[in-house]
Amino acid sequence: MIRALIIDDEQHAREELQVLLEASGEFELLPPCANAFDAIKVINQQQPQVLFLDIEMPVVNGFQLLSMIDEERMPQVVFVTAYDEFALKAFEEKTLDYLLKPVETERLQQTIIKLQASLQQGTTPYYEMPLLQRIPCRCVRRIKLIDVDEVESIFSDTSGVHVHTAEGDNFTDLTLKVLERRTSLFRCHKQYLVNLDQLDEILLQEGGTAKIRCHSGQSVPVSRRHLRQLKEQLGL
């Protein structure tokens, strides 16, 4: 059984694909997601082996969603779309496959065969991704996209990943690792990323560590291991 996640903003489209995938008997389906925000959380938590991913979705589209996934846990991706052949052309070589809506059973069968072969090989797919410009964050009952430029620092703790701006803290489902790779933020500590453009001063401390003070006055720790890199980065 292949652990699969359907991501589509249209309910009928989700249901239809669900019926088709169940009928094939090859899949263990996670509860489908209606948008990229829900999806990223499920992907990080449940690690599906394959995504059936719609391209046109509100706020964060299918392509953008991929760049929010941890590379090491990157699932196989099958794009499902009504009419985006041109957009898909550019992606065709990099993704496993794509399906056109309405999906035909025979066509799906071919995809399943491809998918099984790919999973047996056991290699993690790699997609070249553009940098993230905005970070999706979750507030109470709403979703917010924060410009990377506005971010001062990001840190993770047991409760999750926190995006800190001058206005306050926001919670994101993206991992620190993804944010380090896909943004210009600098890793200054095992648990911290910092935006060097927001840096006010560096306070050197005993034991080879330091503290960064940001524009808003927030203090970000720098570990001994990362201080040297920080100095190099700043040309000190």
Partner: peptide
Amino acid sequence: NPHFLFNALNTIVAVVR
């Protein structure tokens, strides 16, 4: 037409069940 048409058809394909 195409985008609208195929999405509409996909919806109908689902609803008909």
